[in-house]
């Protein structure tokens, strides 16, 4: 079954380096590499910061990898 959650959406940004660029000061008293942040990230369409387990009508699969294959 194909995944349609944020984690497989091309508009979801959650790699640590990008998040620390996106949120100035995040690395000053915390870190995007910490377990507390986990895998949360930013939806660049809705401009919302969220956990990656939701879904929405704007979901668009990532083009460069098969959808639904996690680690």
């Amino acid at each position: 079954m194909k995944e349609t959650t944020c984690s497989d959406c091309r508009f979801f940004l959650n790699d640590a380096q990008s998040l620390e660029r996106l949120y100035p000061g995040l690395n000053t008293l915390s870190s995007a590499w910490g377990c507390v942040r986990g895998d949360a990230g930013c939806c660049t369409v809705h401009e919302v910061y969220l956990f990656p387990r939701g879904t929405c009508r704007d979901f668009s699969p990532r083009g460069d990898k098969p959808v639904g294959r996690g680690d």
């Binding site: 949120y23 100035p24 995040l26 000053t28 507390v36 942040r37 949360a40 401009e47 969220l50």
Partner: peptide, 26 residues
């Protein structure tokens, strides 16, 4: 900041909300 980031994801904060909170915490 860690509390902010954890809760921001839970409530699906707008992109700019964590920035505001991070500034004030620092």
């Amino acid at each position: 900041v860690s509390g902010t980031i954890a809760v921001a994801g839970a409530v699906r904060a707008k992109k700019e909300h964590p920035c505001v909170a991070i500034t004030l915490v620092i």
